[in-house]
């Protein structure tokens, strides 16, 4: 029996930069202002044909570099590939941020000296090491929707279904189907353009 390998994928041909995912995330987990577990970025803004938006959060890497560099070993990777961390062990040193290719780790202000507190990041709505759906888990990590059999809130809220989440193979199949139904890989002109106007 093979386990599911949970992955996020944002189809940048569908993402319309609506920020629904990041707002949904912040509200669902009651994140403080300034903490963005998920954010939407637009690249090549204004460059015709090259502009696209995509939604970024923790990608739950297979060989998560954050987990490798953590000086206190506060990370753990679930069997389904979700990368989580223990906030009671985390010291807020920031090394995971330096190691992360996606800028996922977030650092809220601690109340002690107004200094950087322990790290916060996307949990793929899978909570943390505390007992599932306990008050402590909810307070530290937000909702545990995975335990309830629900899709992570960002993908659930995505209006264009650009943001896909689930077993890597399923996500891959969906995306493959989309590409196939488009008829060709990279579409540089609007559909019908060449029929109407020639080259």
């Amino acid at each position: 029996m093979s386990y599911a390998r949970m992955k996020f994928y944002c189809d940048d041909r569908r993402c319309i930069d609506c920020d629904g995912c990041s707002v949904a995330c912040a509200e669902a987990h009651e994140l403080p202002v300034g903490i963005s577990r998920r954010k939407v970025v637009t690249l090549n803004e204004g460059v015709e044909g090259k502009e696209f938006s995509t939604s970024m959060a923790c990608m739950h890497c297979t060989d998560a570099p954050c987990e490798q560099v953590c000086p206190v070993d506060c990370f753990y990777i679930r069997e389904d590939g979700i990368v989580l961390h223990d906030k009671n062990i985390c010291i807020g040193c920031g090394y995971c941020l330096y190691a992360c290719p996606f800028g996922a780790p977030q650092f809220p202000e601690d109340n002690a000296f107004g200094t950087r507190g322990v790290m916060d990041k996307c949990t793929m709505c899978a909570g943390g090491p505390e007992p599932t759906n306990s008050a402590a888990e909810r307070k530290l990590y937000g909702q545990n929707r995975i335990a309830e059999g629900k899709v992570p809130v960002c993908a659930a809220m995505c209006s264009t279904k650009a943001l896909l989440v689930g077993d890597g193979e399923d996500v891959s199949n969906i995306y493959r189907q989309r590409v196939a139904s488009r008829g060709h890989g990279v579409q540089s002109r609007p559909y019908g353009w060449s029929t109407a106007y020639g080259r």
């Binding site: 390998r5 992955k7 944002c10 995509t54 890597g168 193979e169 996500v171 891959s172 995306y175 590409v179």
Partner: peptide, 10 residues
């Protein structure tokens, strides 16, 4: 992705 995952890289 672990299998046939090339498509998953933007």
């Amino acid at each position: 992705a672990s299998k046939g995952g090339d498509l998953l890289v933007s």
